[in-house]
Amino acid sequence: MSRLRCAFLRLPRLLLALIGAALAAGGAAPRGGEAMATIPAGVYRPVSRATTDPETVAVAAFRLDALPVTNAEFLAFVVAHPRWRRSRVSPLFADETYLRHWAGDTELGPLAPPDAPVVNVSWFAARAYARAEGRRLPLLAEWELAAAAGYATPRGRDEPDFNRDLYAWLARPTPDVLPAVSSARPNIHGARGLHGLVWEWVDDFDTAMVTGESRADAARDQNLFCGGAAAAASDPGDYAAFMRQALRSSLKARQGTASLGFRCAADLSPP
């Protein structure tokens, strides 16, 4: 009985998959006029850093997807690149969490609405997607600079409603079904959902020389890590930044989580 029902349910899903694939194959996908936001040059101040690290990182202006990559877009990618399908992906590049909320290799299913951000993707998969699009993942400093912007000013931390939304999202467990990417309110640069939808991969996510023991990292273990020194917090009150740092340092490149997606970036003037 349940098998039969499954067979019936499969049909529309397959159609959906094909539609998704067709949409994405058509090119720039349904991103309308807000395909990419331009993030002006700025300065990123790491929340905690080794004493040998620079206090600030200058970031050149760059372009960043206005929205995180959706299930429909990622579906089009795996349709075009079968080696990134769930059943075929090498365990070297993705663990068993890879696209686990999808109904099948090329079927999204009820837990993965086409317009919701794709999650359960590994860093390798996110990079492969970006490369296939002729783009790249943003660097950590780039992403943080873009995400520091508020709804109305370049410094969201000073906007009460921005902080309220940020911490409200951080405090909520991840729902089974994520909302549509378009539900996120744009920041002053036009990028949506940097906070409030999903965590996002960055290209250099694993640069923190931490051991997973946050309290010991004030003194770096010279045996395990060459170079650097004690980590010092530039602003120990910026809990949201610590949470992003903790999340990133908990990840391995082949892992995904149900609340981790990504978006692509590009240099401002392509060479």
Binding site: T52, T207, R220, C226, K252
Partner: peptide, 21 residues
């Protein structure tokens, strides 16, 4: 390659690299 090996590395202010051993 670093990600495949689990090697963390980061370029520091003085041009040296902090890295896993």
């Amino acid at each position: 390659l670093a990600a495949l090996l689990g090697v963390k590395f980061k370029r520091e202010a003085d041009g040296q690299f902090a890295h896993s051993n």
